[in-house]
């Protein structure tokens, strides 16, 4: 387990935060350092800096367990539909990374049925990244 935890410490994550991460995600013991690095690289791909990456992982350790292919599909869907500055979106709501494409698509379709245009919906979500879960 040591190497994957070292990968996280190198981001500047404190021991206290690490303790919380391991409490929330005991499966981290079983995630290889390569997989942890892969998740970090995905965040770098959308221009997250070290502070964003640290914030995302500390707030949402579940992100490390997500399938990389699902995260990349989510990123592609968001980009294809006009979302920009994904680094800021994920930093503003680290749990956004836990969505699957179908969840965002369902929300977008629902709001289109409510009469909004796609760019309004993108704006709405970028302005309030928690809106998808707000019933």
């Amino acid at each position: 387990m040591g190497e994957n935890v070292e990968e996280l410490f190198s981001l500047g994550i404190s021991e206290e935060d690490m303790k919380n991460i391991l409490e929330q995600n005991s499966n981290l013991f079983n995630i290889s350092s390569d997989l942890v690095k892969e998740k970090i690289d995905i965040l770098k791909y959308v221009n997250c800096d070290q502070r964003h990456i640290k914030n995302i992982i500390v707030s949402n350790p579940e992100y490390l367990e997500r399938e990389s292919s699902d995260i990349l599909k989510l990123i592609k869907y968001l980009k294809d539909n006009g979302f920009t500055l994904l680094n800021l979106l994920f930093d503003s709501n680290p749990y956004f990374l836990n969505y699957d494409v179908f969840e965002i698509r369902d929300y977008v379709n629902k709001r289109i049925d409510d009469g909004l245009e796609l760019d309004d919906i993108v704006d709405e979500v970028e302005n309030n990244p928690y809106i998808i879960d707000e019933v």
């Binding site: 640290k54 914030n55 707030s59």
Partner: peptide
Amino acid sequence: PQIFGLSIDAIKV
């Protein structure tokens, strides 16, 4: 309520 899920460093910045 989402404040419970944010990292302290993020709030601090």
